[in-house]
């Protein structure tokens, strides 16, 4: 019963998916999370307008051929098999046509890859450090104002109390300004991890001994909270080190920075002093 009601819900949400905006995963939704950066928009555009139609067309083409063959050439419909074993033209065609499709695909694919990977002149830098098992965020250019802080998973009851989704919500989100080119430096203290924010089109492994770079720029008007999860197996609490990014307006970000990394005046340093919420 639960399943049936969920399927019905899914169908509704599918129809709504054109307008429904997700800043976190949605149950039953098909497709990517909402894109809020130019990179993720380009990724979805390339996937939806090119790669996905091509693979669906190929799959349907093969399925249609197979159905036709099974109907037309089964032993009742066609008792006497042909003896054809070669057809050079056909063999050349089914080698060349895929090559052509791939050649056409490789151009926008490279464009997306280089857009994602080549950092533009960024306006600020954040440093993300993976720990076993939580994340640490630092603002190297602002370190005289904002101390680096650690971000832990919220326990289930704390997440409910805070109105955040369990296993996604944290006690101290990474705070970044909207419409700003942010360079992200990712590293790790001991194990491998991967810093991933699906809505940003960002996924970068945190490797001890390495400083990996990536970047994002959240589109204007897309202030809000975005979630991601550690995406490289890192041990027993791999599933319990979520990433929460709070995107705020530039003025709010200045206020937050000048307030020592807090939005409220009277609970300064709230982001840092939250050991109660940390698991174990």
């Amino acid at each position: 019963m639960r399943l049936i009601s969920k399927v019905a819900l899914t169908l509704t949400s599918l129809m709504m998916s054109g307008i429904a905006m997700a800043s976190q995963p949605k149950d039953g939704k098909i497709g990517f999370q909402e894109a809020v950066t130019p990179v993720m928009e380009e990724l979805i555009r390339f996937h939806h307008s090119f790669v996905f139609p091509v693979i669906v067309a190929i799959t349907i083409f093969v399925m249609a051929l197979m159905i036709y063959i099974m109907v037309r050439f089964n032993e009742k419909a066609n008792p006497v098999p042909s003896k054809t074993t070669h057809h050079v033209g056909l063999e050349v065609a089914w080698t060349l046509v895929p090559i052509l499709i791939l050649l056409v695909m490789v151009v926008p694919s490279m464009k997306l890859l280089y857009m994602q990977d080549r950092l533009p002149t960024t306006e600020m830098t954040i440093k993300v450090v993976g720990h076993t098992w939580h994340w640490e965020y630092q603002y190297p250019e602002l370190e005289d104002k904002v101390e680096g802080f650690e971000s832990y998973l919220l326990k289930k009851e704390d997440a409910l109390a805070a109105g955040k989704p369990y296993l996604l919500g944290t006690d101290a989100p990474l705070v970044v300004p909207v419409d700003t080119k942010v360079k992200v430096i990712v590293t790790s203290q001991a194990n491998l991890h991967s810093f991933s924010v699906p809505s940003f089109g960002v996924k970068m492994d945190a490797v001890p001994g390495r400083l990996n770079e990536t970047w994002f720029q959240v589109n204007p008007g897309k202030e809000g909270t975005y979630y991601g999860q550690c995406s490289e197996l890192c041990g027993i609490r791999h599933a319990f080190m979520p990433i929460e990014v709070k995107v705020v307006s530039k003025s709010d970000f200045h206020r937050w920075v000048n307030n020592g990394g807090s939005f409220s005046t009277n609970v300064a340093q709230a982001n840092i002093a939250a050991p109660a919420a940390a698991p174990k």
Binding site: F32, M40, E42, L43, F46, H47, V51, M105, S109, L112, L113, M115, Q116, S194, S196, P198, G201, V202, K203, S231, E232
Partner: peptide
């Protein structure tokens, strides 16, 4: 497609 794989990897 390495660009798309960024979203789908792992």
């Amino acid at each position: 497609n390495a660009g798309i794989d960024t979203a789908l990897h792992d």
